[in-house]
Design a protein around this nucleic acid. Structure first.
Lengths: 151, 151
DNA sequence: GGAAAATCGTGGATCAGATCGATCGCAAGA
DNA sequence: TCTTGCGATCGATCTGATCCACGATTTTCC
């Protein structure tokens, strides 16, 4: 994992469909070793895949809500059960286990507030073992970077 | 934006490098109109680009922290100034303007807690106009989906 | 109901890019 | 000095993208 690998990752985060020839030129290699490095990064799992970046608003999901969930119990089993339940909710884009009171933080997307309310009432709140939840609504996404800092 | 477009988006979110022929088969079209639809989605900005998914831990950034920032003033100018400042910090992956007390929420990545402390002290806290900050540390990423729900 | 527009399917041709193997050069380390 | 690893270059081959033309089907709208 040297400087050239980092350049490759930066370039492919920006444009995951870049041609090998262009990528090679961008990082200062010839195409053959450049392709070898990309294949290596994929095999080692540094690159776990490629995705189209889809505009949330354009597909009718303009609303983002963060939900902090506190569980009644913090055992491994309770966490696993909660994770399995939440994994079935496709509105939940991210789920983090937090330090401190062992909260859980969810990032949820929705069509509108009514849609989110449906999610909360009929899906999330029906998961057993939740002590309480606190929802924080976003007004606007100011920054959404897709480039990890690789300096 | 019909059901086929949604299938295309779902498939390309999962694998942004899928061949047109395979994509066409997956969504039940022949390659020619399938390519046409993809080009349309790109032109309309529904697909804003393609990215390699890079494993955060594998590039030495295993730590994710959410930072809630409260500004002293909530004017448009103050927000713009804050946004411009934060945009220069490449550790900040996401930045949301929140409802309520007009907080701001940041998702920050770091090599370790020392690295995060450096960021906090030497970068974020030097931005003028911050009343206070509250950092929440993640222990583990339970779910990180890259598929918007398109049903 | 009917005409117009949009969309799809197929086939063929062309072109760009990926891939692979072989060979060579260079530099670091044993 | 010899080995090893990495990159550069070249040529051959294969795959996939793109574009065209044509006919058929579906949808939309009057």
């Amino acid at each position: 994992m040297d400087q050239i690998d980092r350049k490759i990752l930066a370039a492919l985060q920006d444009n995951g469909r870049m041609k090998i020839a262009d990528l090679a030129e961008a990082v200062g290699l010839s195409p053959t070793p450049c392709a070898r490095r990309v294949a290596n990064l994929e095999d080692r799992g540094v690159i776990s895949g490629y995705s189209a970046r889809v505009n949330q608003a354009e597909v009718g999901l303009p609303v983002t809500i963060f939900v902090a969930v506190e569980l009644e119990r913090q055992s491994t089993e309770a966490l696993q059960a909660f994770e399995a339940a939440v994994r079935r909710f496709d509105q939940v884009m991210e789920c983090y286990l937090m330090t401190g009171s062992r909260d859980i933080l969810l990032r949820v997307v929705a069509r509108d507030l009514t849609d989110f309310d449906q999610f909360l009432e009929h899906r999330l709140m029906r998961v057993p073992g939740i002590r309480n939840t606190r929802s924080s609504f976003t007004l606007r996404t100011m920054i959404d970077r897709n480039q990890l800092p690789l300096g």
